[in-house]
Each structure stands twice: as structure tokens, then as C-alpha cells.
Design a protein around this nucleic acid. Structure first.
Lengths: 363, 363
DNA sequence: TTAAACATGTTTATCGTTAAACAGACACGA
DNA sequence: TCGTGTCTGTTTAACGATAAACATGTTTAA
């Protein structure tokens, strides 16, 4: 057994078709339906693809036969003739790059939305940028997919949209391609700044005044976007932001220490808003270590409304992305893009919503 | 169509619509390669699919031309002629049905393994059994996929393999189809019982004697399988099991309460092994509530080595499934199955491994 | 009244590849 | 010497659908 077999181009790995066993239960074809009804195959094709083209009577007869035979059009034949595989490509990330499971949930919604429009989802695993571009190019040129949905979770992923633009491979970004001229891309994103504003407003309503931001290192636009939401909301309430920011990477452990620093100050914050559930859970830990009860003594909010936010104790108030809506818009944009590749790119920015749990219970 | 778009941004300022639509950069075909080399298309086909069929000289010339033109075979045409879409189907679950992210990780590995064999992965979202069977049948009859990889996480999913067997749709199960004659199915599974034995042995080595099992309600075979591992290991060490089992559903909250009951006994267990990280995290909570330090005062182990086990404090000792290996075997079985559908089904049972963290640090 | 437009269905020509059969050159054993 | 493989490449015929053009009868517009 050789698992490292690198398959090059089309290498069907020279398997020889040994057993002549089954008649491979042949599926009905369009011709069979046509014959049964006494019409041409083109008429059957119309019945399925442009029903308006036929008279109600014929349409009914054809559909009846389709139903009786259980006919389904062969996708390969259709793709070949129409030059569209009716599928989109989406990258899978290893678990540690999809902490809250947001990508997995998005993929779920994307698959559902795509299916409603007759599109399939081809998912591929890639470790590195090089591997991804290779897979994308390969897949696209093989006519396995029409287009791609990409994400730009980290600043490392920024070259990808450029690559796709250059190769003229159609794509929609879930998230904004920060750093590129954004109006050149088709994208759907959730307004992170607005999300953090909601978190701050919520805190203020609960009576908090000293609200710190336990954020990410400034990197691509994502970190800045979320931070700016906190900044703006604080400003709009006339609250001070100086010295109220601590930044670090996105992991529980460093977040815990960083939150600890905040809480050990002479006048510690009473609220901590964070750009991710991971960071927020670190903050929760720091509170608990100090005997502070999250929610009563210190308010904490996260981002993504991941499973972690739900199962942690106390439950973590978090900002939920409208993934289903985002996926539907993504597919809509994709269809527009494929229909008229040269038209002006569309963009959609969605508002997330706050999910309140114990970590910000009224004081 | 309005998906509740909060904001729909237009693009930047009016750049002129000058660019004339491209001729849809037509991909090179086999005929072009053939012409360039001065051979027939069949020869090019051989070069890619059965290189041994050609003389080294011709092969070299063809591959050179393929390289120069950047030719890639059109998958739709290939699928049509060879009657194999070279793709497998895999179901996506909503986030709350894939708590540890195990399925997501498995899908990642599966995609990678499939790709090495020239297969793609078509992923679909389904809410219910009915929806799934419908999608499966549709997809299969459309010749979009050759076969499916299914899982049977809960006992609700048991009818699915039966459905597939009846329709003669090729499939491999990840996990065992408990309740069916297992030798009728092709499956790859991880030996949960062996995993729990390892957990118990580890505890015993640390000096624990009263090791409780905080398990799942007896349902399908999964729960019984894991429980039997604990049972067997306890027996082999001559340790008592009576009264040392508490069972409940797979969520943190009930697990916390159940673990609390155990810990509040007159002679509480010093070790608690669990069939999932979710349950184990509940046990961790119960300890912490009682001022017991997990690892020092009470040993706790989970299952799945999910992200949660890593980020929780203290780190949770857990049982890791060899997902990459499992995926590779799955693909291997799939190829065997597709090559000779009538041969005797193969099965693979893999051994998981224990990942030790703070929750079972030496006393 | 007449031509143009519409409605409805058919015919023909591919889409790009591989399966199957065929064909010439060469090797080899009887 | 001849028949019989083997090696290498070609030719022909699909695979199952849709695009494009065509062919009718029927409306509609001028």
C-alpha cells in the first residue's frame, strides 16, 4: 500500500479493469425519455432546462415520463456541452486554523445555498499557499469547478486574490480582501467594527465605563477593523480609550496573561471586549483565577458565537455572524459574476448580532 | 431577491468600461497537444493515463508538449466517456453535530487522501435523513459522484447504510455500522474500546484505583464500545466497576452535574474516564467547583483530542483518533470497492493513541 | 392583406475525452 | 519459413447532453 503516490496529471494509476462483473445498472438517458414520449431529445432537454419553451401539454407528458423512468440528466455530459461544471471550489482548513468552527459552518451554509441553485461544492485541503494555488489552477483548468469562494483569514492569504485576478479565475471572497483595491473584487463580509460597537454599547447600557479592548496584534485589516469598532463606540460615548488596549496573538494562554495584566491594575476595567471567543475565554480564565465572577464583577464579550462560547461556564456573550445569509449572498454574487464576468464587482456587507449570555449579565 | 442585506455597497468611482470581454481564454485540448507532437489524440490520452503503453521517446515528446501548452484533461469529458466522475460524496454536519470538529478534520484528511488518487470530494449539507437520501440519490444518478463516505455518529443514522446497500450505491463507512451485519459493509473505524483501555491503564500506572466511567446513555454500539473498553481494562487490573458508572447525554452541563454526584460520594473516585471531551470538560468543571485540582486531586480523560481538550485549563488528557491514517484507508477501500464491487467487503480497525496533558499529571 | 414575429418542435453538429478494434513492425519459437 | 505474439500507434465510434439553426403553423402589426 503506497500512500505517498503522487498522482501527476491524469494518472488514473494504471488500474486494469479486471472484473467484468456488473452491467453497472445503466441509468436512463435522455434518449430513452424522448423515445417513450415520442419527441426529440432536445424537447426533453427543454422540459428540464427551459420549461417555458414548450407547450403545457408536451411539458406535462415529458415530465411524466421523466418521473416514471426516474431520469436524471448526466452532469458530466451537461458540463461538457455547456462548458460549465456547475460547481464551486472551497478550501478546507486544518482544525487549528478554524478554531471556532466558523469556516466549517460557513461551508455548511454555502453547500446548502449552492445546491439550491444547482451548484455543487468541491472542497479541497491545502496546507500552504503554493499548494492551494496549484490545486486551484489544476482544478479550474480541468473544468472541475467554475469558480472559487475564498477567505482571507490571515494576512498570509492576501496574495491569493491577486493570483486569481491575474489568472482570470472567477472568485468571490468571504471576508474583505484587505489591502487590495476592494472594489475590484466580489466579496461578502460581516461588519466586524459594527459588531464590536454593539458589544461596547451593550456594556455601556449595563453601566460599564472602563471598557478595555483585548485585541489582536495589528496585522491585516481584520484586526484593525474590529479594533476600530471599539474605538468608535467608545468615542461616541465619550469614554477614554488611552491605555485601554492590549494586543496579542489569538490564543487562550496569552490572552489569559494579558487580561491578567489589565485586571491587576490599580483601576482595572470593568468590561473587556475581544475580537474572538478564543481571546475572550482567556479573559474569562483570568477573571476566575482572581476570584472575580465574569458577568457580575467583570463583563466580557467575544466574537463568532462559536461552540466554545456556548459551552464555557459562564456562557460567553458573543457576536454572531449571519453565516446563512452570508452564504446565500455569496452564491448570488457568484451567479452574477459567472453570468457577466465583466460587469462591475458587487460587494455585500452584513451586520452581525449580539448574543447575550452570563458573561455580561446585568450587574 | 433580498436576503436582508444590511448594506449593499457599490464600487468605486466610474472607471471606464473600456476592456473588451476576453475570448474566455480557451483551454488547450488534447487535439492541440496531439497536433503539436504529430500524433493522434489517443496517444496523448495514453501518455497521461497509461504511460507504459507508449515508447519512451513518444512519451517524452508528448509530455513535453503537455507541459509547454499547460494542457490539463477536461474532467467532464473524461467522466462522460469513462463513466466515472472521479469524485466521492461526503456529508457536512451543522456545527452542533460535530462538537469536537472531528468530522471537519476527517473531511480535511479525506480530501487530501482522495486527491492523491485523483478523486475529488463533493460535500453536501443535509439536515435530515430524508434530505440526505434524496441528495445522495440525486447526486449519484446524475453521475456527479462515484460513491459516498458516510458516518454513523448516532443511532438515527443507521438506516442510511441499509438504504445504500439496497440501491447498490457504493459506500464506505467511517465508523462501524453497528447493528448491521458488519461484514457486509466496507468500513474503517477507530477502536474506541482500546482507546478507553489505554486511558484506564494510564490511570492505573499513575496509582489510581477507584476509576469511574462517566459515560453515554446506552444507545447504538458506539456508547457500548467505549464503555466496554473501560470495563475490560478495569477487570484486567482486578478493579471494581460496580457503582462506578454514571451515564448521560453528551453535553457539558449534565456531565458536570453527574460528575458532581460522583465526587460528592463518601469515597469518591480519584479518576474519571469519559467517552468524549465534552463530557470530560464537564467533569473538569465539577472538580474546579469543589476546589479539587484536576490532575493532582482527580485524574480526568476525554476522547477525540479536540481543540477543546487543548485549550481548556488544565489541558485535558484525551484519546486521539488517527484521522489521517483513517482517511487514507478509507480511500484505499473505496478504490478497491469501485474496482471490484462484488468482492468481499474489507474492514479496517485502527488503534487510537493517548495524549497526556495536565488533567492526568502524576500525583 | 401581407409580412414580420411568435410559438413550438426538430435536426444537425458538436463539447473533449476514452474504449474498442485495428494495423504495421518486429521478435521468437517450431 | 511461417504463424503467433508483443509493441506501438492509429482509426472509428461512442459517452449523453446542449447550442444553433432550421421548419412549421399561428399571431400580430402595419
Amino acid at each position: 500500500m503506497d500512500f505517498n503516490a503522487k498522482t501527476s496529471l491524469g494518472a488514473g494509476s494504471g488500474r486494469d479493469e479486471g472484473t467484468r462483473s456488473k452491467p453497472r445498472s445503466s441509468r436512463p438517458t435522455m434518449a430513452m425519455v424522448a423515445e417513450r414520449v415520442g419527441v426529440s431529445t432536445q424537447t426533453v432537454s427543454f422540459a428540464l432546462s427551459s420549461p417555458g419553451r414548450l407547450s403545457p401539454t408536451t411539458l406535462r407528458k415529458v415530465l411524466k415520463a421523466v418521473d416514471e423512468l426516474g431520469y436524471r440528466p448526466n452532469q458530466a455530459a451537461r458540463s461538457l456541452r455547456s462548458r460549465s461544471p456547475q460547481a464551486l471550489g472551497f478550501r478546507l482548513y486544518p482544525a487549528d486554523r478554524d478554531v471556532g468552527g466558523v469556516m466549517a459552518s460557513y461551508l455548511y451554509e454555502l453547500s446548502a445555498a449552492a445546491r439550491k441553485e444547482g451548484y455543487g461544492v468541491f472542497s479541497y485541503a491545502a496546507e500552504t499557499y503554493e499548494e492551494e494555488t496549484q490545486i486551484i489552477e489544476e482544478t479550474f483548468r480541468r473544468n472541475t469547478v467554475d469558480c472559487f469562494v475564498i477567505t482571507c483569514p490571515s494576512s498570509d492569504d492576501l496574495p491569493l486574490p491577486l493570483f486569481l485576478l491575474e489568472r482570470q479565475i472567477p472568485f468571490v471572497v468571504f471576508g474583505r480582501p484587505w489591502g487590495l483595491p476592494m472594489s475590484d473584487c466580489w466579496w461578502v463580509d460581516v461588519d466586524g467594527a459594527a459588531g464590536l460597537e454593539q458589544a461596547v454599547n451593550h456594556m455601556v447600557e449595563l453601566g460599564h465605563r472602563r471598557i478595555a479592548y483585548l485585541g489582536w496584534e495589528k496585522s491585516a485589516g481584520l484586526a484593525e477593523d474590529r479594533e476600530s469598532g471599539w474605538q468608535r463606540a467608545m468615542g461616541s460615548h465619550g469614554l477614554p480609550t488611552r491605555g485601554m488596549i492590549v494586543r496579542g496573538p489569538d490564543d487562550v494562554e496569552t490572552a489569559r496573561r494579558a487580561a491578567g495584566e489589565l485586571l491587576d491594575r490599580k483601576t482595572p476595567p470593568t468590561g473587556i471586549v475581544c475580537p474572538s471567543d478564543t481571546v475572550a475565554i482567556g479573559a474569562l480564565r483570568a477573571c476566575q483565577e482572581r476570584g472575580l465572577e465574569p458577568g457580575r464583577d467583570v463583563g466580557i464579550t467575544g466574537y463568532d458565537d462559536s461552540l466554545g462560547a456556548r459551552v464555557v461556564t459562564p456562557g460567553l456573550t458573543s457576536i454572531a455572524q449571519p453565516l446563512e445569509t452570508a452564504a446565500k449572498h455569496t452564491v448570488r454574487l457568484l451567479l452574477d459574476l459567472l453570468n457577466s464576468p465583466d460587469s462591475k464587482p458587487e460587494q455585500v456587507l452584513l451586520r452581525p448580532s449580539l448574543v447575550v449570555r452570563e458573561s455580561t449579565m446585568p450587574r
